[in-house]
Amino acid sequence: MKVLGGLGIVGLVVLLVWLTWSCFPLGELPPWEEATAAWGSKNAVAAIVLGARLWDTLFEVLVYALAIAGVALAAGSLGTKAVLPPLPETPLLHLAVALLLGPIGVFGLYVAVSGHLGPGGGFPAGALVGSGLLLLALARGTRGLTPGWAGGAWETGKFAVTGAILLLGLGVLVLGARGEPVLVGLNVLIALEVALGAWVVLREFAHVRGEM
């Protein structure tokens, strides 16, 4: 069976090489200045993601939100919960995290807000902030970080943000709202959603104690 599969992979690779080789030279590109002008953006990719193809992006936001819901659901059914113990208590780590967290947050916000002017956008910004939160969690332990906050509260907040994104999308797609504020608003909301989602996922992964 494995030999057959190996042959299949070799065949696919050969096929792909032939396909790409015959694709050259690549064709001319359509101009994109119109799109950026229409959406008040300097970054063509942002204009497409948040403007022309917002329809796709809405579903992408839902994919992300639902994956997190699925993770929480499956992890919740495991039942046995144990808290991720913090890494060894070293003052150096605490200091490093405390020093790093502020800049990470500010950088994330910058990446989100300026996503339509240059490289950046809501998704990377949210992921950056989410990773920063994880560093914090590793240094202080998850329980120390969220005293009294039930896991459900985070998820509810995340779905509220997702709903807000969908409503903003309704405004753009059906009512025809557009322009720079829409892009910034979408980017910031998406960043918030992704950061919250990343936090929920990492929390669930940190809490579930699996067995080999």
């Binding site: 809405l58 998820e155 509810t156 779905f159 059906v174």
Partner: peptide, 15 residues
């Protein structure tokens, strides 16, 4: 609008 209503209702259902 119909699809978006469906989706918003679904998301609201989580809250």
């Amino acid at each position: 609008a119909g699809i978006l209503t469906y989706l918003v209702l679904g998301v609201v259902g989580f809250v």
